[in-house]
């Protein structure tokens, strides 16, 4: 009984690592700007260690077998971190495919007296590495998607600040489309800020909202209703002429909500509600300003 292919490869692990590393280092597309060669060596060695720990002749035939999970997990980790580091998908896939050359060379040498078996085993190894390559692709894309999701989250958070513009008056300058998840975020931070500051008026400024359709209007109404349930008044400001037009044309009813054309007029209205009077100081007493 001849020894198994996996056993054969396992015995040559050191040689395979050297061959693989040499192949990678000789590649003109090596990204030593993104990853130091020592790190690459350590990563490759760890991957080979895992590969030879979990690989059996059976799982070589069945790359989707659950016993390979540790290898798949590790590969996913490498692939995702490469996505973050800025490797291209081609570079990441090549990393795995370059291992195929070394593995094939090794079997070729070991089975040179048994061409029939060599063909079968080479095919198997080829297929196996291909499926690992596909995993790197999938997780690479997943890694990219995670980055996109995180950036979107950050953007949403950045674009919904709640600012106190006067004692008792909060303003929320909305920029971008007000979809439902965004509206929920605005509501949560606005209501919390109302509690924190004890404010009784909130101004939602929609100057930066590109369009108001039925959904956006509904989200605005929800925000106003929630604010009122907390016991604060909510004013919508920054309604541009074209927005006013679409609101009317769509038949959206905002009649229960106080709306103002500009943030300035909303602020003026708020002062009235709070019974505050803003006065210009007469010129004669302007020297009095020095005492401020």
């Amino acid at each position: 009984m001849t020894s198994s292919t996996v056993e054969l490869l396992r015995q040559k692990k050191k040689q395979i690592l050297t061959g693989w590393m040499n192949g990678q280092l000789a590649d003109s597309q090596l990204r030593d700007d993104l990853m130091a060669n020592e790190d690459l060596h350590a990563q490759s060695e760890k991957l080979l260690d895992t590969l030879f720990t979990v690989l059996t002749d059976d799982s070589l035939d069945h790359p989707d077998s659950a016993s390979l999970n540790p290898l798949v997990d590790m590969l996913s980790g490498i692939s995702k971190s490469r996505a973050r580091q800025g490797f291209t998908p081609r570079e990441t896939a090549n990393y795995i495919f370059s291992l195929k050359d070394t593995l094939l060379e090794t079997v070729q040498f070991a089975l040179k007296d048994n061409p029939e078996r060599l063909v079968g085993e080479s095919l198997k190894i080829g297929k196996f590495i291909d499926s690992l390559g596909i995993i790197t692709f999938e997780t690479f894309i997943q890694g990219r998607e995670e980055i996109i999701v995180r950036q979107t989250d950050e953007m949403i958070n950045v674009s919904t600040p709640v600012v106190q513009i006067w004692e008792g008056i909060l303003a929320v300058p909305l920029i971008g489309t007000l979809d439902s998840s965004r509206a929920l975020l605005v509501m949560e931070s606005l209501l919390q800020e109302i509690v924190n500051t004890g404010s009784s008026i909130a101004i939602l400024d929609i100057s930066g909202v590109p369009m108001v359709d039925t959904m956006v209007a509904q989200n605005l109404i929800k925000t106003v209703s929630a604010t009122r349930l907390m016991g604060a008044e909510c004013i919508i400001s920054g309604i541009r002429p074209e927005i006013a037009q679409t609101i009317v044309h769509l038949g959206i009813d905002l009649s229960t909500i106080v709306t103002k054309a500009s943030l300035a007029s909303a602020l003026k209205h708020s002062f009235r509600l709070l019974r505050l009077d803003v006065k210009k100081v007469p010129t004669s007493s302007s020297d009095g300003l020095a005492y401020d």
Binding site: M187, L191, T227, G231
Partner: peptide, 12 residues
């Protein structure tokens, strides 16, 4: 008085 923010959002 004193409705919690989470309760207000849920009601809406």
């Amino acid at each position: 008085v004193g409705m919690q923010p989470a309760v207000a959002i849920t009601l809406v």
